[in-house]
């Protein structure tokens, strides 16, 4: 899983895809996860990181992550 090349992520959670011209906003959790993906972390590592800093059970986190990643894919922001 890789964030597509030349996708820009700003500090305040804006995302710009120069290839399609689309822009997006992320909430804080969304931004954190996208940055972790961009940093090359695997799904397992991302989960461990989030579970250590948030009050959240693993099953629920799994569901949210899956949903979020499918949205990133749907919006052409990541590659498999």
């Amino acid at each position: 899983m890789k964030v597509k090349e030349n996708i820009a992520i700003s500090d305040n959670g804006f995302v710009f895809n120069p290839t399609t011209g689309d822009s997006f906003t992320l909430n804080n959790t969304g931004k954190e996860i996208l940055l972790l993906i961009k940093g090359g972390k695997s799904m397992g590592e991302i989960k461990t990181t989030l579970l250590s800093s948030y009050d959240m059970d693993e099953t629920t986190l799994d569901r949210y992550l899956l949903d979020f990643v499918s949205e990133l894919r749907f919006n052409n922001l990541i590659d498999e």
Binding site: F24, N27, T29, D55, L65, F68
Partner: peptide
């Protein structure tokens, strides 16, 4: 934890 979201503008 808040559900992660991404919204297209």
């Amino acid at each position: 934890f808040e559900r992660p979201t991404i919204t297209k503008l």
